[in-house]
Design a protein around this nucleic acid. Sequence first.
DNA 1: CTGAGTGCAAACAGTTTGCATTACT
DNA 2: AGTAATGCAAACTGTTTGCACTCAG
Lengths: 145, 145
Amino acid sequence: MDRWIGHAQRTLERGGYRLSTPRSVVVETLADLGCRVTAKEIADRVRERGQDVGVASIYRTLELLDRLQLARRVDMAEGAARYEPVDPSGEHHHHLVCDSCGEVSPFEDRELERAIERLAGRVAYAVDAHDVTLRGECPACRTAD
Amino acid sequence: MDRWIGHAQRTLERGGYRLSTPRSVVVETLADLGCRVTAKEIADRVRERGQDVGVASIYRTLELLDRLQLARRVDMAEGAARYEPVDPSGEHHHHLVCDSCGEVSPFEDRELERAIERLAGRVAYAVDAHDVTLRGECPACRTAD
DNA sequence: CTGAGTGCAAACAGTTTGCATTACT
DNA sequence: AGTAATGCAAACTGTTTGCACTCAG
């Protein structure tokens, strides 16, 4: 993910955006937390490290990252928006969400991607992104039923 | 969709839930509005018809429908939760969302469903539902670029 | 030095909840 | 009659915004 931090910083600079401390901290923290991160989780983690950043700046930075395609909103309907870094290579994953315990596991699937690509070529929209979420019970909850 | 209204009412009754007027009105209105409906849209439509229902009851009914698998939250990240009726046959569709104008079109794709089914058999979770959203530009925005 | 960016706090929007009242069954 | 369910209004939660201050370039 350090790769992504550099990419993000470069893109911000190139776009004429200042590399302020709060901005950098949010970028690093997002990279650190990885996938499906909420603003609150970032705020908490930042505070843990002693480097306080106002919520407003967190939201403003996340919005900026989203606008620059450096991150993506992958909000899965629990009231709070979730973001994750976007790999410049286009590599990405999707999520399995456990309905019982809320656990989330990422997965990748080549066949699924292929089906989506083909589908994208068949519709009238110019598709440039997609989200897939599978819901069900995780192994732990399954045995604990 | 009348089919669904009956199904929903029967399921509610069978579950020991009262078929109160507000509840029925919400069920009918959800069926009427169809797909990707917000609580506010239901409230507005209900008021149009002269049959006022308190927001609390709308939220409570939607939550109940979701719990009974009669409806599903398909929140696509604009701050408000969206619901849609669940067809008892398992038939369903997904959505294309336009990043420019926000337009949403439903679509169905057999190949995509097959890929997801196969994938579901390959993962450790017991998958029982899935969401797919394709994002991009709708035909109108494409030509207007 | 100077404006982009920040932090604060107040404003908002959507949703949830406690409680007295209503109305299905 | 009895209790599930409602409506209201107040409480919450997540997010946005106005404004005076700060600091990266």
